[in-house]
């Protein structure tokens, strides 16, 4: 870990000002991923601006019937907030599927969205990695890529985004509220928050230096009765997803009237399964329909040498998550 200056920001304006003054400064919130990567010498800021004392932790109903979740609130609090549990159980479940109790107590909601990939070639400074060191090559492409992407990857990068929470937020049509270095606020649709790797895998998101996530808003929906977050992993708990699925739908009579499906562990960003969603609208929630939709989505997958299984696993996971959602989350 390189030497860095530690600065304690007192309020939002001073945090923004500090960041604006130093292009090599980083905000420090939960620190669960940033410090990990600094110890690995992957992240090399020369200043950390502690933003844990800025507030921005509130969870409250919005005027339009949705919910606003403070960017600096802790994951545990978001998962356990009565409004979230009651109206967005999918989000609770996804948060609780991630990491461990200790880490969820530390990690912030904004920070969760800014996790970097767990690709082992990214983490190991002895290895080539275009994300860590643009132009050095992708170690995983010809290497061991069992954990890697099957959708949306580029020749430059095949990494996947590790968050669970973000997969649920993608399914729930969340928006991210951001204040930039000059104090200007903007709202970004969740689908536009994270990026596909393309030619610039070093850029995970569309944030600029000094941008601060102040809150995440989820619009009102009626998906709570039928939602489920399924996570498939190599051990029962405390492991990153091979594939995960956030699935939720609304019924009108016997038919699906609205459906949201997002996947984790398959791409450089939470992967909205739009094809599957379209195929399910107006259909009965049967296993056969679930399968047709899932297979249609996975037909576009481009697996790599070691992750071909993710195509079949992805398809099965979509079906299973929808079935669980149908049964109100019970098997």
């Amino acid at each position: 870990m390189r030497p860095f200056k530690y600065t304690n920001a007192k309020d939002v304006p001073s945090a923004l000002k500090l960041a604006a003054g130093n292009p090599n400064a980083r905000f420090l919130a939960g620190g669960t991923n940033l410090l990990d990567l600094m110890k690995e010498d992957v992240e090399r800021p020369d200043e950390l601006i502690d933003i844990t004392r800025l507030g921005l932790t509130q969870i409250k109903a919005t005027g339009s019937g949705g919910i606003s979740i403070g960017g600096l609130g802790r994951n545990t609090d978001a998962a356990n907030h009565p409004l979230v549990r009651q109206h967005y159980p999918l989000l609770s479940q996804a948060i609780l599927a991630g990491a461990s109790g200790q880490i969820r107590n530390m990690a912030t909601n904004g920070g969760n969205l800014l996790q970097r990939t767990r690709c082992p070639y990214f983490y190991d400074v002895a290895m080539p990695c275009n994300k860590r060191e643009p132009g050095s090559g992708c170690g995983a492409m010809e290497g061991i890529n069992r954990m890697h992407a099957i959708f949306g990857w580029s020749e430059k990068c095949i990494a996947v985004f590790p968050s669970d929470m973000a997969v649920a937020l993608a399914a729930l049509d969340a928006v991210v509220k951001i204040t930039n270095a000059s104090g200007e606020e903007r709202v970004v649709d969740f689908a536009d928050f994270h990026r596909l790797p393309g030619d610039m895998p070093e850029k995970d998101t569309n944030l600029s230096h000094g941008d601060l996530i102040t809150s995440i808003e989820i619009p009102k929906n009626n998906l709570a009765d039928h939602s489920y977050y399924l996570k498939v992993r190599d051990r029962a708990s405390y492991a990153f997803a091979l594939v995960s699925v956030a699935a939720a739908f609304e019924m009108k009579g016997n038919l699906i009237s609205k459906v949201r499906i997002a996947m984790g562990g398959v791409a450089h960003k939470p992967w909205r399964a739009m094809k599957a969603e379209q195929m399910l609208i107006g259909k009965e929630p049967t296993e056969a329909n679930f399968k047709l939709a899932a297979n249609a989505e996975m037909a576009d997958a481009k697996p790599l040498e070691h992750n071909k299984f993710k195509v079949e696993l992805g398809s099965r996971s979509i079906v299973r998550a929808l079935q669980m959602a149908l049964n109100g989350g019970k098997s």
Partner: peptide
């Protein structure tokens, strides 16, 4: 990784000792 001889599973996040669950 047979190209480099390094362990791709290089931390406790990659090498999965059974968890309590």
């Amino acid at each position: 990784d047979p190209r480099f001889g390094h362990f791709v599973t290089r931390s406790f996040a990659d090498y999965h000792v059974p968890s309590n669950l």
